[in-house]
């Protein structure tokens, strides 16, 4: 039991990094997805390149580049900032693709009906297509969020005191090789399960309305 207290200290950091990275990703992913869907090559080609680069480099490499590279030489960043920023950017790449497939899944007749009624492009997106795309994208987005909760542990590599960082430290301090990590495992499951249940509930509730 003595390990529990030590490992629990990491929970706020794990949650903070996950939530901030998701927020950054959700916000930056949207313009990226819209640019990716644009018919203008000047928009969709760069957007695709950005998405591929964000997703194509391992998260830990991104974090090192941002923390040691950018953080030491350009803008000073502490580990927490670098971790949030790095995972946020990577999330933007993944969420952009999730948004894009959501938008693509909305039947083209929905755009046509909006056009025929004289709705503006913005109204069509915000009120007609967007909400439907959101519902389609929700399961994939929540799967990504749950994944990120676990994979945010990569920030321990640059010294953010999250669950894994605390477990490692505790293991070193006490010499216990297994117990701190079992505690970490249990905490991750306890954190992730309610998220999974909530997303399943929301999904089935929204699905009832969209079913046609």
């Amino acid at each position: 039991m003595e390990h529990v207290g030590a490992v629990l200290l990491g929970v706020p950091y794990t949650l903070l990094v996950t939530v901030v990275a998701l927020a950054i990703g959700a916000a930056l992913g949207l313009p990226l997805a819209l640019a990716r869907r644009s018919s203008l090559a000047a928009l969709h080609l760069p957007a695709r390149a950005v998405i591929d680069v964000l997703r194509g480099i391992p998260p830990v490499v991104w974090l090192f580049i941002i923390f040691f590279g950018v953080g030491n030489q350009f803008v000073p960043l502490d580990p927490l900032q670098a971790g949030c920023l790095g995972l946020g950017l990577i999330s933007a790449g993944y969420l952009a693709e999730i948004y894009r497939s959501g938008l693509g899944a909305v039947h083209s007749g929905q755009w046509e009906a909006s056009d025929a009624l004289g709705l503006s492009r913005t109204d069509s997106m915000v009120r007609i297509v967007g909400p439907q795309a959101f519902r389609v994208a929700l399961p994939a987005a929540s799967t990504y969020a749950i994944g990120l909760l676990k994979d945010s542990s990569v920030v321990s590599a640059i010294g953010v005191a999250d669950i894994v960082f605390r477990s490692t430290a505790d293991s070193r301090a006490t010499g216990a090789a297994l117990a701190p990590f079992l505690v970490a495992a249990a905490i991750y499951i306890l954190l992730g399960t309610p998220l999974a249940i909530a997303s399943r509930r929301m999904d089935s509730r929204l699905r009832q309305r969209v079913a046609r």
């Binding site: 009906a113 025929a116 079913a211």
Partner: peptide, 15 residues
């Protein structure tokens, strides 16, 4: 705005 359109596949907004 001056022309109302009815589609073969209805295209109601399901949400």
């Amino acid at each position: 705005r001056t022309a109302g359109m009815v589609f073969q596949s209805f295209n109601l907004f399901p949400h």
